[in-house]
Design a protein around this nucleic acid. Structure first.
Length: 255
DNA sequence: AATCAGAGCAACCGCTGGCAT
DNA sequence: GATGCCAGCGGTTGCTCTGAT
């Protein structure tokens, strides 16, 4: 299922990610954000290339990602959009909150492509009889379809609102990039604390897409109500595990 | 119980486009 | 306009799992 870990000529690790690496990457991004993917692994203490880190975060570690268990509704959306747009996976992913383009692509190749090939006729028949899909929908639970309706902000591997996507934007000499960009950081007391400038300017809200999801799966950062801590329920259970990792993270000393 | 083939999916690779200089 | 850097995108690969024989 996963590639065996190997090292390339530059000493960069490749292949499957270990739990420790996951924790380290997650802890680092939670603490500092992903201000520059190429530099990030160095500061996070990972022997990975930036691209690999980005992929891991975008496709697996980000909060609010759903894995597997595609609903009939989601399948239909994928099929429909694929008919309309072809292999524009990022575009399709934009319509399916919680799904990544990579996962959708895989799902298409392993499930839907074949089904479409073989099952055109049966699909047409299904359309005339909604019983099957209704039953399936009920089996999958309404909660999931509700989450689709609520989560109107897509999660893309290529989220356009990713923090400081341009390295050029980042010119701060501060040792704390997260603070400079209004990223929510962990305090010494071990609690998530939003930086004070978290409203208004786009560039000061770098984590809208990736991070600012509450337990119901939709962004809360744009609301005028009280600030809802990102990563709410998703990480609550595991936060204790991350603090020690964060403690180990090197003190940043940027040029 | 052993073997094999196909399925599934995480991760890699190479190309492209956007942006800064 | 040319160049370089970076993130994003889509195709492909390779390893593991699972079911059939």
């Amino acid at each position: 299922m996963v590639r065996a870990p190997t090292y390339d000529e530059n000493g960069m690790k490749k292949g499957a990610w270990s739990k420790e690496e996951d924790d380290r990457l997650r802890a680092y991004i939670l603490k500092y954000g992903h201000w520059n993917w190429r530099e990030l692994p160095k500061f996070a203490g990972l022997s990975r290339c930036g691209k690999s880190c980005r992929l891991r975060w975008m496709n697996y570690l980000r909060p609010n990602l759903k894995h597997g268990n595609y609903t009939k509704e989601e399948e239909d959306i994928i099929v429909k959009l694929h008919e309309e747009h072809g292999n524009k996976w990022s575009l399709i992913a934009a319509k399916l909150p919680g799904r990544t383009d990579n996962e959708i692509k895989n799902y298409w190749h392993t499930h839907l492509k074949r089904r479409n090939k073989n099952g055109r006729k049966s699909d047409q028949m299904k359309e005339h009889s909604t019983e099957a899909s209704e039953w399936e929908a009920s089996q999958n639970g309404e909660a999931e379809s509700q989450s689709i309706k609520l989560a109107d902000t897509p999660i893309l591997e290529s989220s356009p609102l990713s923090p400081a996507t341009s390295a050029g934007e980042f010119s701060s000499s501060s040792s704390d990039h997260a603070l400079a960009y209004g990223v929510n950081v962990f305090t010494d007391q071990g609690s998530l604390a939003p930086f004070e400038n978290t409203s208004g300017d786009f560039w000061r809200e770098p984590f809208v897409s990736d991070n600012a999801y509450n337990q119901y799966g939709y962004s809360s950062s744009s609301s005028n109500g009280p600030f809802v801590l990102p990563y709410g329920s998703y990480y609550d259970d595991n936060l204790d595990l991350y603090y020690p990792v964060m403690e180990e993270l090197p003190v940043l000393d940027f040029p």
